[in-house]
């Protein structure tokens, strides 16, 4: 599971089940092709604050600023850092924890189970 997916995921059937906390057992960094246009498009969709707090909880250093720069579309440094955070960090094993109900959703072989 990539962090982009995590940023979109919420606990099903809840109102405030976002963001899900991550309990990591195994994670890895995989290289992914950089697409500046796509990454810029994702900025408007992202919950940036949730992404930053997730990165902090995983203790991953990505060099992302505290807030989205005003002119992010042409800011290659920012987009590359964001791309790394969203697309290149894979959670392979662990749990997602709902902040509302404390329900645990297991992640196995990179696939979160939201049942």
């Amino acid at each position: 599971m990539k962090l982009l997916t995590h940023n979109m995921l919420m606990s099903p059937g809840t109102k405030n089940g976002y963001p899900l906390a991550i309990e990591v057992e195994k994670m890895e960094t995989v290289e992914a092709e950089f697409n500046g246009e796509f990454t810029a498009r994702m900025v408007e969709k992202l919950d940036y604050a949730a992404l930053l707090s997730t990165l902090r909880s995983l203790s991953v250093e990505t060099g992302l600023p505290a807030a989205v720069p005003a002119e992010y579309a042409g800011d290659e440094v920012f987009l590359k850092a964001l791309h790394h955070a969203l697309m290149e960090i894979e959670i392979l094993e662990g749990y997602l924890v709902c902040p509302e109900t404390q329900k645990k959703f297991p992640i196995r072989e990179g696939i979160p189970s939201m049942l």
Partner: peptide, 27 residues
């Protein structure tokens, strides 16, 4: 599992659509 074997680029989530899709608004 088969999708993973086939190395699709998409992100896979195990969920039941009948209990609601587990995503944020406007994703």
């Amino acid at each position: 599992g088969v999708a993973q074997q086939r190395e699709v680029e998409g992100e896979l989530i195990h969920s039941d659509m009948g209990t609601g899709l587990p995503f944020r608004q406007g994703a």
